[in-house]
Write a protein that binds this DNA or RNA. Structure first.
Lengths: 192, 192
DNA sequence: ACGGTCGATGACAGTGACTGACATCGCCAA
DNA sequence: TTGGCGATGTCAGTCACTGTCATCGACCGT
């Protein structure tokens, strides 16, 4: 029970999600999380920059998948389609994790500070995507706008996916959302 | 010099911007802000929910202008055009405040926590806009997507406006950005 | 003028997030 | 065995933020 139990980081992540889910984010102290993981508060802060980050540290791999997908596509693919492909690749990464995503998202939705952190993570995706698009020769500000729009599509689709207890196909939700955005910016659909 | 100097709130806002601008956000304590404004730390927290909010409290009026503009437009106006009109109305509100906006934005850009707060404010605009669009009969998820895309247009245009020391016309920057987004997403309704 | 009410402020103690400095523990290589 | 080294523990300290109560200053009715 002493030091050197394996996977300290993972234990902290799991303990945090459980406590945030049970008592709420604000009602949970870092000391409690650490204790449940068999560690000390100081060690928590060696693994995670702050109390919120423990819920978001896993997102780094997704961002790499996301950007990598766009970068690997042939230049002949138009930007909006490249973004669509990347979104679908990320969506596929959530396969079979609906229950986990749902619990985590419920915790985040219940607290403003956690929503803030989530938004800045998505903004970081958007910035990385903007960069990748520029490298493909997309101009400014088109690159930023396509990236922001793409992230918006993901956000909306993901929200819908998580809302329902009965998991639909996230990839398809993303396709639908993108089509709706295309229609709306063309000024053709959705008006009263 | 005692109590009852007028405009305590405004003095706190100005003192905070000056100190954040000079020393940086993290290097400034709330006690210092309060002292410069001739008040105490406790009074600061009676006016602003936290150390960041002092930079964002003025945004409420803008959100009302923004949503109000959309709500007042005749239903015959297509959603994307209604959003464009609202963005331009807000842009007009920044007339002659370029120097202030520039200083404030520099402070925000220099600190991750402040960027987080800015993102959640924009997300709040987006949510309010989504609501207003729904009331105009726009369906889901089109309402969310148009709102998110509109905010993205504003974000990109505003960034460009603030970047340059020599102020261009924000309204025109917004028009250009919206056109770029339309071009990038151009396609038929329901296309793959 | 007087006393009373009320909102804004001050004073103070307390909690908890986060940090820096240093000691300690367990693994691995020389 | 021993020394290095990374991960952890311990402890003190700062600062954001909160609850509570006292105090001040303006306005109001008498």
């Amino acid at each position: 029970m002493g030091r050197w139990e394996p996977n300290a980081r993972g234990r902290l992540e799991q303990a945090a999600l459980e406590l945030y889910s049970d008592r709420g984010f604000e009602q949970t102290t870092v000391a409690e999380i650490a204790k449940r993981a068999g560690l000390t508060e100081r060690t928590f802060f060696r693994h995670f920059a702050d109390k919120r980050e423990v819920l978001f540290a896993g997102g780094g791999a997704l961002q790499e998948l996301f950007v990598g997908t766009v970068a690997d596509l042939p230049d002949s693919v138009v930007p909006i389609d490249a973004v669509a492909a990347a979104l679908e690749a990320v969506a596929a990464g959530f396969e079979g994790r609906h229950a986990y995503a749902r619990e985590r998202q419920a915790v985040i939705a219940a607290n403003a500070e956690l929503r803030e952190r989530e938004l800045i993570k998505l903004a970081s995706w958007s910035a990385a995507l903007t960069d990748t698009l520029r490298r493909r020769g997309v101009g400014d500000p088109a690159a930023s706008l396509i990236a922001e729009a793409g992230i918006a599509v993901f956000k909306v689709a993901f929200e819908r996916w998580v809302e329902e207890p009965d998991p639909r196909d996230l990839v398809q939700l993303i396709r639908e959302s993108l089509d709706e955005l295309k229609a709306a910016t063309a000024g053709k659909c959705g008006s009263a």
